[in-house]
Design a protein around this nucleic acid. Structure first.
Length: 589
DNA sequence: GCCGTTTTCGGCCCGACTGTTTTCAGTCG
């Protein structure tokens, strides 16, 4: 059975992903808002974000535990569980259909335009018949919008600008790739003499894999001067709004950026507010409210008396919570865990002692084994595993058995050289073996057994069914010579979707066979996702954090792997390459 | 429509900025 959504896209029933379900729920929130219904919009919003951050697909939850299982998602109760059930079974739900019939408007598309919300969409539809982005642009260009009541020339210009931005924006950016630009902008803000301190907040501080905008918080006694200087920076393309303490701009790289200035006494409260996530903040403010307090970006107040605000630590403390690391602030149980004193001790930046996935010029890497080793040494690492591609990846010049043996000899020679130099640095013999369509490997067992670190990975046949993909990876894990599965789902953010997997079966198999799962730190992979990391931690599965370096600069990426692990609530002991080489090797098969 | 370390009923986070009006609704984060 197939249906078509409002934008004309085909939907496959029973396969609806969490993202698609969340999109449907968000549409409901907007539609109810347009109808002027109270409280339901927020309820649907809340449910949508609950579904979105869930580590388990709704279709799996439903398969296992029916509607009751869906109700375990925060924000999902009887009513919305019923709607999700219908979405999974039929691809639609009745109340949504009823409202869409009444208001046949692509609200998702229109609300994506900056400055356009439910109420505006309603007026534009009722008065001008605007149903989608195309209609909106046409109405704007013909000057019809400015004639509407409570609209004017400026509103019309703002809408047209918003459409333009939407067309040019590349969507969310990969944090590890855009970070240098963000830091450069931060450095310029910090260089203003009026700025006492400045920091990047928002999703970049929470170390999300991708960010949708940039939030900078600054402390200053002269906020207006800071704003004036900010909007003249060369990186800025367009000023969306500018006030005394808050300015919103569009950067030349297409990213939205907000600058907020507060006094020093509010720095902690403002940083907390500005770091988010939104759901985390809402929960904190509700908590404050229950204690008879009020929390905003200026501080935590008891009546007129400020009781915290200078530091984030004191804000959490006064709310009866232990400090929550930014990477955990997604309202996925961290507040409850903090209150109960059950937050995990996260792996720290700098805890890694080795890197277990490194490519060299023996295949598609840029640098020699020795150059990679020297660069890793400079980063403070104690060991790396050389894991060049194998023969099935013909394009990369992948190694066959003979070439692998030759490379092992070269590594032995290099290690001897390190020994003579009195260096403790060690290069381990490894490979990134290719998992074939049927789950077999492209290197024979005899050679695999000689490797110290045998990683296996999928590089082709990304479109097999879930059952087929799972079977092929399980079969690779069952090979006693395979130590690690590299970049488990094969996704490339903004380029390639992850392969479909039964993650429960993968985790069970990892446990049974003692196979390590890799967190690939290469920024646009960040594979596995944090939700899966969390489930590995819960199941006691060991993971590694590897850079997937193809050149000497890429060891810097390890930081983003640590971020990803922290977002998945992982501690030092969950990650095998926080150990010395000797101890780490003992943890492999 | 959801939810409970004040509640199974009665609440539901908070403030900056804009545009179009003269006091605030809408949007955003």
């Amino acid at each position: 059975m197939e249906a078509v959504d409002i934008s004309g896209r085909m939907l496959k029933y029973g396969k609806m992903t969490n993202q698609e379900i969340a999109k449907n729920l968000r549409e409901m929130a907007i539609l109810y808002e347009m109808e002027g219904v109270f409280f339901k919009p927020r309820a649907y919003e809340k449910a949508a974000s609950g579904v979105e951050v869930s580590g388990e697909e709704m279709k799996d939850l439903y398969e296992k535990g029916g509607k009751e299982a869906l109700k375990k998602i925060p924000g999902v109760g009887e009513g919305i569980a019923f709607h999700i059930e219908s979405l999974l079974k039929k691809g639609v739900f009745a109340e949504h259909e009823r409202l869409k019939k009444k208001i046949p408007v692509n609200v998702s598309e229109l609300s994506a335009v900056e400055g356009v919300g439910p109420k505006m969409i309603k007026v534009l539809y009722k008065k001008l018949g605007v149903k989608n982005l195309k209609d909106l642009e046409k109405a704007g260009r013909s000057g019809k919008i400015r004639k509407l009541e409570r609209f004017g020339q400026k509103s019309e210009e703002k809408i047209l600008k918003g459409i333009e931005f939407l067309k040019n924006s590349g969507g969310r950016r990969v944090l590890g790739i855009i970070a240098p630009e963000l830091n450069a902008l931060l450095a310029m803000v910090k260089s203003f003499p009026e700025v006492e301190t400045a920091i990047i907040a928002g999703s970049a501080r929470r170390k999300k894999e991708t960010i949708g905008d940039l939030d900078i918080l600054a402390v200053s006694k002269k906020p207006e001067i800071v704003m004036e200087k900010f909007i003249t920076l060369p990186q800025i393309a367009n000023v969306l709004s500018k006030g005394k303490t808050k300015t919103m701009v569009i950067l030349k790289n297409g990213l939205d950026a907000d600058l907020r200035v507060v006094p020093a006494g509010s720095y902690g409260a403002a940083l907390n507010y500005f770091t988010g996530s939104k759901d985390h903040n809402v929960k904190l403010r509700e908590l404050a409210q229950k204690k008879g307090l009020k929390l905003n970006e200026y501080g935590l107040r008891n009546g007129n008396r400020q009781i915290a605000g200078k530091s984030e630590e004191e804000v959490y403390k006064k709310l009866g919570l232990s400090y929550i690391e930014p990477e955990l602030r997604e309202n996925t149980g961290e507040i409850e865990a903090s209150r109960a004193g059950k937050l995990p001790k996260l792996i720290s930046y700098g805890d890694l002692k080795g890197d277990l996935q490194v490519q060299t010029d023996w295949t598609d890497g840029e640098n020699s084994i020795e150059a990679m080793a020297e660069a890793a040494k400079k980063m403070g690492l104690e060991y790396i595993a050389i894991t060049d591609h194998t023969k099935a990846l013909v394009m990369t010049g992948g190694s066959d058995e003979k070439k692998l043996l030759k490379q092992m000899a070269a590594i032995d020679k290099l290690n001897s050289k390190f020994k003579i130099q009195n260096s403790k640095f060690r290069v381990l013999k490894g490979a990134e073996v290719n998992i074939m369509k049927d789950g077999s490997l492209d290197i024979n067992d005899k050679t695999l057994a000689k490797l110290e670190v045998a990683g296996a990975a999928v590089h082709s046949h990304f479109n097999l069914t879930r059952a087929e993909q799972t079977r092929r990876i399980v079969s690779a894990m069952e090979n006693p010579n395979v130590d690690i599965i590299f970049h488990l789902t094969g996704r490339v953010i903004n380029k390639r979707e992850p392969i479909e997997l039964d993650i429960d079966e993968i985790i069970m198999t990892a446990k049974r066979t003692g196979t390590v799962l890799e967190i690939d730190a290469y920024p646009d992979r960040s594979d596995i996702r944090e939700e899966y990391i969390k489930r590995c931690v819960e199941a006691g599965i060991k993971m590694s954090i590897d850079s997937d370096a193809h050149s000497v600069q890429h060891f810097n990426f390890l930081e983003y792997g640590v971020s990803q692990a922290r977002r998945g609530w992982a501690g030092k002991t969950d990650i095998i390459n926080t150990c010395s080489a000797q101890e780490m090797l003992k943890l492999l098969k």
